[in-house]
Design a protein around this nucleic acid. Sequence first.
DNA 1: CTGACCAAATTGGTCTGACCACTACGGTCA
DNA 2: TGACCGTAGTGGTCAGACCAATTTGGTCAG
Lengths: 244, 244
Amino acid sequence: MANNSKSIVDCITATLRDEILRGQYRPGERLPSERDLASRFEASRGAIREVLKKLEELGIASINPGGVRVVPIEEASLSILGPLLELHEWPDVTLVRHLLEVMGSLMSMSARTAIERASDDEISQIQRIVQRMIATDDPKENQENWKDLARLFARINDNLVLRLIFNGLKTQFPKREDDPNFELVVDQQQRIKNLKLFELSLRKRDSKGAADAISSDFLLAIDAVERTLNSHPFETGTASQETR
Amino acid sequence: MANNSKSIVDCITATLRDEILRGQYRPGERLPSERDLASRFEASRGAIREVLKKLEELGIASINPGGVRVVPIEEASLSILGPLLELHEWPDVTLVRHLLEVMGSLMSMSARTAIERASDDEISQIQRIVQRMIATDDPKENQENWKDLARLFARINDNLVLRLIFNGLKTQFPKREDDPNFELVVDQQQRIKNLKLFELSLRKRDSKGAADAISSDFLLAIDAVERTLNSHPFETGTASQETR
DNA sequence: CTGACCAAATTGGTCTGACCACTACGGTCA
DNA sequence: TGACCGTAGTGGTCAGACCAATTTGGTCAG
């Protein structure tokens, strides 16, 4: 299926992972035995075992004597978010919404603590990025700016937990933007307003105000994404399964 | 070293992972070859390969032809947080602080959106938990209450991203509490005050107020943890490495 | 001394086939 | 009907082999 150029086990991993994420095997159900998988993919059992180890580490499979079982997505690792988002041609609206909610919350917190701890020089670095954000209205460029900002916050905060979460989060975002049909309709006026508010708070070292400004901007983005995604041809997504 | 009762590869994985996390191999450096590792652990190369696949999925090793290389912790997956926290007898203070900051932020956000979407019945469920929190001052019991609250929020929000993050976050917390020396000194008065504020906001469906109350309580917890951990014999932790 | 270049050693990638301990399952027997 | 038991199947692990690619270290020309 997904015959990428990678190594065989990576390829099989991707295929099997996607099949599981698509719900092709119900949670709790047994996966085919290693030997069966080996013959199906025309690979050796060793290769299949490596695949399964990876799937287990991803949190979507549980290897135990007697059979490999599928684990419900809700108990998986953060790393499956990427594959999950790229699964369907159009990402699941509510999933994206939830992702943005979380990112907004973390960016907001990140901004708050960063501003509290930043040196004057770092503050002006932040300011420079924000000004770049205000100057452009190109979504792609802006995404880069947001990434820069996140990186800068990460460096200032030196918060490992935050970095690890972002590692699992950021991986998947960018590719969608290349899609010509995928055009975000953002309320530019409101956006600029938020950013200016952020800059003002920054100048006053009002970390709470800055955090709020960022939150607002993410709410705006959520709104835009929802409107964009909802106005498009849609596949029924098996992505968001039952919550227990 | 870590001869747990698990399977050989899980055991080796744990050993090797901890060695890497301890900084025994510098980032970018090459790990011993699969064959060398196999002879060192007296295991077959197949087993070692499975181990390495897991380490790769954890984001701390990068397998490529010519040699396996160590990846700096900052680029790892969230799943290493657990092992990282359990590495030293006394957890790294700043790491715990950062963890609490993140959890506080997420719980706060979680509370906000949950309260906005909750049914009346769910609101009263929240209230019941909060009352339990107010009633007791046993840290262990309280931690259970917080977990219940988080679970409830997760159910109400139905936010997969949030759940995945918590999956990676919660795993590691509880065990410390068993340590008799580990006694948190929380300002109970302030804690109750925060909780009452939360309950009040809840009653008024003031999601923002509730979120703030939770934030405050986490700040309190951070304060308590820092005071507790700092007052104890300390090992120099290799945990928080340089950020670039 | 420097840099390009080449060959051997090493490394990961994969396969085959084998053995063990344990589980799952179906059939037997009371 | 229900407890019991044996077999088939499963994962866990091992050994040894081959290939393609990289790494390494030495050689040789500038």
